[in-house]
Every structure is written in structure tokens, then in C-alpha cells.
Design a protein around this nucleic acid. Structure first.
Lengths: 195, 195
DNA sequence: CCATAAATTAAACAATGTTCAATATATGGC
DNA sequence: GCCATATATTGAACATTGTTTAATTTATGG
């Protein structure tokens, strides 16, 4: 029996998340299971379920942290560029991050939660922060009173990137087409339309 | 034991696909299982596996047929409209179809195949036919020698629609944002960029 | 030192995809 | 009509899942 005083409750929660991430990184999201995490962390299944109500919650927390990593990655970008360049940089940063953490990003993109799963507020906030980066990078393009248009456009950019990654995850982008090609073209088309 | 002469091999294959589609339509892709299909069709699990090597193949065939249905749905569209209108019609037809067959479309969009699953040629051909519709609707916009650009743009439109549907499937489009809003805006942005 | 609360285990459950030997059925040759 | 052969079908098994729960162990506070 793993000793209760080995780690505080909080520490163990972190250990579980670290272990889950390691399994996902090394073997993909489909290889993740409660028992593997448990044995990896030196406890048994039940303990996992006391820290995370179910597997969806565990994956959800992990994915939230992955979004946080992406946000940090993007926050390092220079903020002085002209709006067009800045959007390109942002898109490239997305692609970079996805290439650097393929399995973890795949989990964010294509893990299917069960029907009664609820989105944590922290998760939504993180998405909003990422959308905020896109908003900042493009707001000079909406000098008029077209703020609602911008909201829609940001969602569209986000959805489009999401689709590119989704198709990429299952190798369905098309022969010779890369994520980078499509992301660049997406920004290009968008900027042309805004001109 | 179900009598062997009740149906020819081909008939039984069709029955299995019909049953699978019914289960998906009524209870969603996550409710689909080999045993449910088997009992629904009046046979046992093993028979399913003699007709479809594994569940991925079964879903793949079903999804291929769904794409076929979408293609038929889109083929009824008038072909005389100006290119812009035609692209809007096409996008609306996609959205219509997805709204008409939510669960079956969800299966196409977000079912995760196993790691060693291979895409059937028939499936890819069907995707190509759908991309062909987009190509036809937009080719007058590429009067110059920009055919490679068009190929990329078609893939981009496809990926973007895909992303919109993916996010919609998990209710993550954003507060008050609909599939139709985004699809229309997508076409709008694209056409503006092409102008 | 003991009572209480919390953490942890071990075992169970139902459901899944998948395989396989045994059995039943149809078919073609006589 | 009968028999051998090929094929279809079953039924049971296996490993793996997520999840629950009663029993046990551990820490903590009086």
C-alpha cells in the first residue's frame, strides 16, 4: 500500500497529471487508461478516481494544461509587429507548438468526451485567452464599428485552424498538403478579405 | 441459428450497414457496438466480423455511404448560379445535410479510427467528388494560371468547414455562434479575398 | 492511546473489441 | 437421394476498458 504521507493530496493530483501526460506523449491518447496511470504512479485504480471523478475529467484537466502551455508559447511572441505579420506569427506559433507536442495536441483536438461531460470554467477561460491573442492581433483591422464581425472572424479563424489540425491528425489533409501550407493560406485569405 | 439462406452474403452485409446506421441515428456513434448490431440483425457477433473485419471497417463503410448521401444531396443544387452564389448554396447544403442527419454526420466528423486503419479507395474517391463540387463552383475565380492555389484553397475551405462541424459537435463554437453563421462568413471571407 | 476521518486497496461488474474451435448449413458431384 | 467439401454461424472465451464499493490501512486530534 502506497503510504499516504508520501505526498499531499495536491502533490498526488499533480503526479497523476504528469504521469497521464507522459503516457499520452509516449503512446498517444488511446493508450491512456486509469490502470496505467495508477501503476505508473505507484497506486491503484481507485486512487485515481478519488482525485479525478472520471477519465474525462482527467483528460480535460490535462488538455486544459496543454492549452496553457500553448498560451505561454504564444505569449513570447513580439507584440510590435504590424497586424498582418503578427497574425502570421501567431499561426506559425500554433503550428510549431502542435509539431512540438503532437500527441498532447492530438488529445486536445480529437479526444471525445462522454455525453454528460461538462466544460470546466478554467478550460473555457484558457480558450478565451487564446482567442484574445487573435483578437489583439487583428483589432486594428476593425477600426469601424464592426466589433461583432471581429468576434465571428476570430471564431472562424479558430475553427479553421481546428479543422486543419483535425484532418492532419488523421492524415486527411490531402496529398502533399501540409498544416503549415493551410495555416499560412488561411491567414493570407483572411487578411486579403480584410483589406 | 439464423438460417444461412435467409439472405445472400451481399444482402446480409447491407442489412448490417442499415442496422448500424439506425443505431447511430437513434443513439449516436458511441452507442454502436458489434453485439448491438448483431442482435439487431438477428445474428451473433462473429457474423459481423465475417462481413466486416473489425468495427473500424464497419464505421468506415457507413461513413463512406454518408458522404455519398451528402454528395447526392449537393448534386441537386442548380448549377447555373454565379460562382459566389453557388459557393454559398453549397455551404448551405452542407449545413442542411448536417442538421438533417446530426448523428450520422457526427460519426463522419469525429469518429476516431484505430492506429492501423487504412482508408478505403472508395472513401477517398467520395471525398474527392465532394471537393470536386467545390472546385467546380470556384474555378471561374482562378482564370489565371493559379490552379495550385485553387487546390490549396479547396482544401482550406474543406478543412474550415470540418473544423466548424467539429467544434459544433462538442458545443464549442462559442456563445451565440451557429454553424450557419460561421459557414456563411467563411464563404464571405473567401470570396472577398478572391475578388 | 484511542476514536474518528480520510486515503488506499482489492475485488467485483458490466461492457467493449476480437478470436476461434465446434457446429450447422448449403452446394456440387455421384 | 447421398455424401464430401466448403462456407456460415454460433457460443464461449480472452483481454482490456471505465467505474463502483466494502474492507482495510493510515494519519490526526483529543
Amino acid at each position: 500500500m502506497a503510504r499516504r504521507s508520501d505526498h499531499t493530496r495536491e502533490e498526488l493530483g499533480k503526479l497523476i497529471l504528469i504521469s497521464a501526460r507522459r503516457i499520452v506523449r509516449e503512446h498517444g491518447i488511446d493508450a491512456l487508461s486509469a490502470r496505467k496511470v495508477a501503476s505508473d504512479v505507484g497506486y491503484t485504480v481507485g486512487t485515481i478516481y478519488q482525485h479525478f471523478g472520471n477519465m474525462d475529467d482527467l483528460v480535460h484537466r490535462m488538455n486544459g494544461e496543454t492549452l496553457e502551455m500553448l498560451f505561454d508559447h504564444c505569449s513570447k511572441l513580439p507584440t510590435q509587429e504590424p497586424p498582418g505579420d503578427r497574425l502570421f506569427s501567431l499561426a506559425r506559433a500554433f503550428v510549431n507548438f502542435a509539431e512540438k507536442h503532437p500527441s498532447e495536441w492530438d488529445a486536445v483536438i480529437s479526444y471525445r468526451y462522454g455525453p454528460d461531460h461538462e466544460w470546466a470554467v478554467g478550460y473555457d477561460e484558457m480558450v478565451n485567452q487564446l482567442l484574445g491573442l487573435l483578437t489583439d492581433a487583428t483589432s486594428s483591422l476593425y477600426c469601424g464599428g464592426h466589433r461583432e464581425e471581429q468576434v465571428l472572424d476570430i471564431r472562424l479563424l479558430w475553427a479553421s485552424m481546428y479543422g486543419i489540425f483535425s484532418l492532419h491528425a488523421s492524415d486527411r489533409l490531402g496529398k502533399g498538403v501540409t498544416v503549415d501550407d493551410l495555416a499560412r493560406r488561411l491567414v493570407d485569405v483572411y487578411l486579403r478579405a480584410m483589406r
